[in-house]
Amino acid sequence: MAMASAPDGDLSALWRSRVAGSGPRPFLTYHDFGTGERVELSYATMDNWVSKTGNLIQDELMADPGSRFLLAARPHWMTAVWALAPLLCSAVVSPWGDAARARFAVSGPDEAELDYARACQGERYALSLLPLGRPFAEVPKGFLDYVAEVRMHGDRFAPLDPPDADAPALTTADGESLTHRQLLEQAAPKYSAGARVLIATERTSADAAGLIDWLYAPLAAGGSVVLTRGGEDAELDRLAEIERAERV
């Protein structure tokens, strides 16, 4: 099977095209061996979360084009939402970047992640990462509960300032910015067109390189990802067989 060619345009246009053409097909399946949680988000279901989050960014935060969103959270389906939604608003995702330079921050629930994000002086959201998308029982001090806040926003999103291919999209580990075009050029060659891949969170990350591997590359290929947490090799092999996915 041929590798996917680099899509033209920006990630926002690509996302809309994938949702329109593959709405009910799986996009991201999250499996946690420790809790037994399995969440499957189709392109349409993920779009619901991304759209709600886009409306939060646009209507509540009033983020300007180029606004930097720190993302300090482990690989998870909620992390994926925040790696996509700002890009649809012409904002920039800064995974584990300079928190002090970020206008807004999104953090996971672990204390190390929260401490990292506290250097951001703007609005800060915490991701509970709990099964079934539950909110926090006790919201971390200095943060808003993303799950509780996003529910009030609509699930149809129209950007006021849609990005173009040369708009900045993602900051890398060395602080440089990839444009939408550069991001897609790096992501597209990784997997075959339509590939379904299984990736263990312990063998990847939520920095720029990790996000390209387990999120943007499957999207660019028009495929899907099974993201797992925990599990021994034999369990992962069995899950890959059940999910009809290729381990990478």
Rank of each mutant, 00 (worst) to 15 (best):
Val81Phe: 01
Val81Tyr: 02
Trp82Gly: 10
Trp82Ser: 00
Leu84Ser: 00
Leu84Ala: 03
Leu87His: 07
Leu87Asp: 00
Leu88Tyr: 09
Leu88Asp: 03
Cys89Lys: 00
Cys89Ser: 09
Ser90Ala: 15
Ala91Leu: 01
Gly97His: 09
Ala100Cys: 10
Ala100His: 12
Ala100Lys: 13
Arg101Leu: 13
Phe104Pro: 13
Phe104Ser: 13
Phe104Ile: 08
Ala105Asn: 13
Val106His: 07
Val106Arg: 12
Ser107Val: 08
Gly108Glu: 10
Pro109Lys: 08
Asp110Phe: 14
Ala112Arg: 14
Glu113Phe: 09
Glu113His: 06
Leu114Arg: 13
Ala119Asp: 14
Ala119Arg: 14
Cys120Gly: 05
Cys120Ser: 13
Cys120Lys: 05
Gln121Gly: 14
Gln121Ser: 15
Ala126Cys: 11
Ser128Ile: 02
Leu129Lys: 02
Leu130Ala: 15
Leu132Pro: 00
Gly133His: 02
Pro135Arg: 07
Pro135Lys: 03
Phe136Ile: 08
Glu138Met: 09
Glu138Lys: 14
Glu138Leu: 12
Pro140Val: 10
Pro140Arg: 04
Lys141Tyr: 08
Gly142Thr: 05
Phe143Lys: 10
Leu144Ala: 10
Asp145Thr: 05
Ala148Met: 01
Ala148Lys: 11
Ala148Asn: 02
Glu149Lys: 12
Glu149Arg: 13
Arg151Glu: 07
His153Leu: 05
Gly154Pro: 06
Ala158Met: 03
Pro159Val: 00
Pro159Arg: 09
Leu160Ser: 12
Pro163Phe: 01
Ala165Val: 05
Ala165Arg: 14
Asp166Cys: 13
